[in-house]
Design a protein around this nucleic acid. Structure first.
Lengths: 203, 203
DNA sequence: AATAAGTGAATGGTCATTCATTAACTAATA
DNA sequence: TATTAGTTAATGAATGACCATTCACTTATT
């Protein structure tokens, strides 16, 4: 017989399909029946793996936020690497996760946050704060090193850069004119110039 | 006793309340009962003014897109004004509409587009295209005038700037640290630098 | 009287969730 | 090896809630 045994655990399957559907149709517009159908079984079975719909959303957000933060965590206090390289790594990692073909890492970021219970929302937001703090630290070091313009507000700058990346998935198309690498390059350059890096450093 | 007569037409009231609710809770999560309650009457009455829920969403999006595009339409072929000023006007108009306290102009941009019928979605998207075209024209003129960097891709640049603005509503708070004017100033400067307009280039 | 504004009740539909039950598989036992 | 017990995976049916929409009807306004 083909396979009765889960090649990957069913929970991963549910997460993957739900993640795709939530992004394609939205959280409220996706029914448990939709998710179950995509996985090849009936709605009731989902409750053997998750407490409910909200829990699925939570697990997706949690997983995706960690995927974004983990690979760049070390940049926060990495005094050795120069800020320009740090920023490039932050952008590249985030864009690749956002536009990558692996449907697993299609973050919803804050799209579905209000569908979460307060406790869970708090947890997700605290993870996002980590991301912000890393970006802020990088920019601050860049200012101190005279690489970025002194009058830049770190917080708004990080929000702005993250906004470009988060929204890139709306206008990006794999069949479109631009490759992921080109988009990364654009956002890196645009951000660096926006921060005042390049020709005139520091001031 | 006070006022039986609509000070403003009921349709405007419905649009205003629905717009606020759609933003706060999302389209699917907002019921006709919610909208009716916010307006002070019963769900059935809404159907005296609108064909249905989707039509309300459409009217909101239509109105908000036009509010964004109309005031800057003339910038597309305005050869007289310098590109830096043009870009500033585009950003300022968009940010004020996005963050302004008038709850009427709280655009959803493309948040609820997939809840629209194909024909209506097409109409809204064509309006958004207008916005993009204006931005592209401005940047192209700037490049020709030697104000912006030649290797900038106009399209991605406009998307990026619009992304920052559209998402600013997520992190902006009226009670927060920054005023709307400060945010405008930041986004304008960040965008101009991103486009390669150095301190020497602008004026 | 005639029109406009607003309503209560009903309709058909969908949805998330529960639960008792069956099917499928595993491991231990006789 | 054959049987059984136990565990996990999956299901069908039912529940209660909510929702958009319709329509005949009442109330208010001109």
């Amino acid at each position: 017989m083909a396979e009765r045994k889960p090649r990957k655990s069913q929970q991963e399957l549910i997460i993957a399909e739900a993640s795709r559907l939530f992004w394609e149709k939205g959280y409220a517009e996706t029914s448990m029946k939709d998710i179950a159908s995509a996985c090849g079984f009936r709605p009731a079975n989902i409750y053997n793996y998750f407490g409910g719909k909200e829990e699925i959303l939570y697990e997706i957000l949690l997983q995706e936020m960690m995927e974004i933060v983990s690979p760049i965590k070390h940049l926060k206090e990495d005094e050795g690497v120069d800020p320009v390289t740090c920023l490039r790594m932050l952008v590249e990692n985030h864009v690749r996760l956002t536009l990558g073909e692996k449907s697993r890492s299609k973050l919803l970021f804050d799209v579905g946050l209000n569908n979460l219970s307060p406790a869970r929302r708090k947890k997700i937001i605290s993870l996002r704060d980590n991301y912000d703090q890393i970006g802020i630290a990088i920019i601050r070091r860049g200012k101190k090193a005279g690489v970025f313009s002194k009058e830049i507000d770190e917080k708004i700058a990080v929000f702005s850069i993250a906004s470009i990346i988060a929204r890139s998935r709306i206008w990006y198309s794999p069949k479109g004119k631009y490759s992921v690498d080109e988009i990364i390059e654009f956002i890196v350059q645009f951000s660096l110039r926006g921060l005042g890096a390049g020709t005139s450093a520091g001031r």
